[in-house]
Design a protein around this nucleic acid. Sequence first.
RNA 1: GGUCCCGUGGUGAAGUCAGGAGUUCACGCCGGCCUGUCAAGCCGGAGGUCGCGGGUUCAAAUCCCGUCGGGACCGCCA
Length: 406
Amino acid sequence: MTSRRSPDPNSLNIFQEISLRKPELMTEPTLSTQASSRQATSMRTHLCGELREADIGSTVSVCGWVGRRREHGEHLAFVDLRDHSGIVQCVINDDVDVRSEYVLKITGTVRVRPEGTVNDNLPTGKVEIGDCEVEILRTATPPPFPIDARADDVDENIRLKHRYLDLRRERMQKNLRLRSKINAAVRNAMDLQQFVEVETPMLVPSTPEGAREFLVPSRKEPGSFYALPQSPQLFKQLLMVAGVDRYYQMARCLRDEDLRADRQYEFMQMDMEMSFVNQDDVLDAVSEAVLAAAEAATGERPAPIERITWHDAMNRFGSDKPDLRFAMELQELTPVFANTEFKAFAGALHLHLLALQVGRVQGGRGRRQGQVGRRRRGWRGLGRGRRGRRRGQGQVRPHPQPLRPP
RNA sequence: GGUCCCGUGGUGAAGUCAGGAGUUCACGCCGGCCUGUCAAGCCGGAGGUCGCGGGUUCAAAUCCCGUCGGGACCGCCA
């Protein structure tokens, strides 16, 4: 495909970029603006957030939204111009009426900030754009909430009502790009393993699974309905029988269940099938995708994922999905209490100790309750105690007493 | 389907239990001053049927009933 724009090697269009991209390039570490020089257009030469000391002296054009402005009389104003890459300070000496969320094109000279005025909080904080020529591309009414981190405190319904404003925020922009990077990384990892991405139909007959399906009335068959897939299970066996060998899909799943906290009606799953394999082959393939996703998000390739058997997991952690970020391993206490006179313990087949370091991990309290509370099968009771200042406190409760954090 | 909680200028919160003039705080907005700010600063100003309807009362943001909207949890989520 030929580039319609200038032959500048830095201005490859998106199609060329994809075809040239090597697998190892997928490991680009950050979400930031490293690719931004490719986003120069006929209107701009740079993105706001990419200007650095190396650009000092060059004349640049940037386009973006007005964040904060700090006015000092008619002949000096500081405007924070924002695009998805970040913020750059523009120094405006003319009397231009520029308000919050106006869309501007600013042409000026990148210069070093005067001593003592560097802003270490901004990646662009060592420079600013001076001699600004301001073109107002679009005026704006004052936004109903601030387009920055403070909007985190604003009621979600208000943010959703003005979704186009909410999405301008750095956090939301990063979320969109993070998701995009992860999707690309997973697809790349699957592609490298010879998986075939196949999309299965959305409008299907109802299938007898657990979740309620969303129903779509049929125009051609009044009284009949399509069911939107709650998961992509229906067709993939067909593909496997047909010899596709390795199938995967980033599948949209729709479930008409009542909402709870962060649950959503629709969400994505990566669905996969493999032929002529054993369990380890499947785990290998999935691990590749998971590690690639983690690497795309964090910039670092995590260590290989440890494999333990279900029995080991249950015996060591009491959970089939143990959280290994902190020590939650059960300790065998049966011998210690072998001759105890305490009746509740004396009759026990096994006694385990779960030592917890309270307060070390965010959400640890809820996790602790969950991990202890959910695996009650076969347990006859739970004792708890605390080591430290109030040593010796504790109690033993038979199930099904509700469990409370100590 | 159930239980509980919340609706107050553009935003976020006090005020409600214990009724007494739409009161307060922060941010935002508008105007003025201001040539190095970056949560700019200083001065002034505008902006609210207290979700809606009914009731009690001399008097309702406040108490009662209903209703609408939102949230959390339970049920539910192969």
